[in-house]
């Protein structure tokens, strides 16, 4: 299905197909990503939502036998980011990712956030200090850690670690922020903090979030895509999807009849 929305687009996938070796796991995926909005990808396990998300920063290039077909265009430059002639590193520098389980580096809190800048060759301590503070404020962690920036990131709680990972992803001013089930390993309190943060962050950055939790999608996202067996079954404004889905399968999934 092709869908159009009446907003500024940040990215758009066009007839995207993805293969793990012989396994055809994304089938003709078309999806617009609105600028500075949260787009949620929902669907049962194995439907390809994480696979789709990982196309956006070319994570699949890290492993052999993976193959993309079609296009993911980013705007305004209309660059096809999955084209083989585009360096995946160039894409990852602009599109950050927050993973399912908090995965801070076993380094200090400061170094975790500074890493993206170090990768980019930033050496000036002043610049790094500034970015670290800004990102930690951005991820609502600054007040909790400002006095212990040199402590190990492993001393933080799970929720704090995940917010640290968000700060790490923010430090390099990404154009799109990808969240892969960011709260699935966290307790409800930590989860609601992350959700508030996502709503806050969309004022500055375009967000795509994969979630297993439909309430979460309903709470944080502006648009929702329901995926099933590697295809987008339905895409619409979140309100519409959760109140009046037009597809039977979507309705069955969101009412909990399968998945």
């Amino acid at each position: 299905m092709t869908v159009t929305i009446s907003e500024d687009l940040k990215a758009e996938s066009k007839n995207l197909n993805f293969y793990y070796g012989a396994l055809h796991s994304l089938k003709n995926v078309n999806l617009p990503i609105a600028r500075r909005r949260v787009t949620a990808l929902i669907g049962p396990s194995g439907c390809g939502k994480t696979t789709f998300l990982r196309c956006f920063n070319r994570m699949h290039d890290l492993y052999p036998h993976n193959r993309y077909e079609g296009e993911i265009i980013i705007y305004p430059e209309k660059l096809n980011i999955i084209s083989p002639s585009v360096d995946p590193i160039e894409i990852r520098m602009q599109i950050s990712m927050v993973f399912q389980k908090p995965n801070p580096f076993p380094k200090s809190i400061y170094e975790n956030v500074a890493y993206g800048l170090r990768v980019r060759g930033v050496k000036k301590k002043g610049l790094i200090d500034e970015a670290v503070e800004k990102s930690l404020r951005g991820s609502a962690l600054w007040d909790e850690v400002k006095d212990r920036l040199n402590n190990s990131a492993f001393d933080l709680s799970g929720g704090q670690q995940q917010r640290l990972c968000i700060a790490r992803a923010l430090a390099t001013d990404p154009r799109i922020l990808l969240f892969d089930e960011p709260t699935s390993a966290l307790d409800p309190t930590a989860t609601s903090k992350i959700e508030e943060l996502i709503i806050e962050l969309k004022n500055e950055v375009t967000i795509i979030i994969v979630t297993h939790n439909m309430q979460q999608a309903a709470r944080v996202s502006d648009y929702t895509a329901f995926m099933y067996l590697g295809e987008i079954i339905e895409f619409d404004k979140t309100d519409k999807i959760f109140t009046a889905p037009s597809n039977k399968l979507t309705e069955e999934y969101i009412t909990g009849r399968f998945g």
Partner: peptide, 9 residues
């Protein structure tokens, strides 16, 4: 490793 690569390393 993925965390590092995802930042463009």
């Amino acid at each position: 490793r993925e965390a590092s690569y995802a930042l463009g390393a």
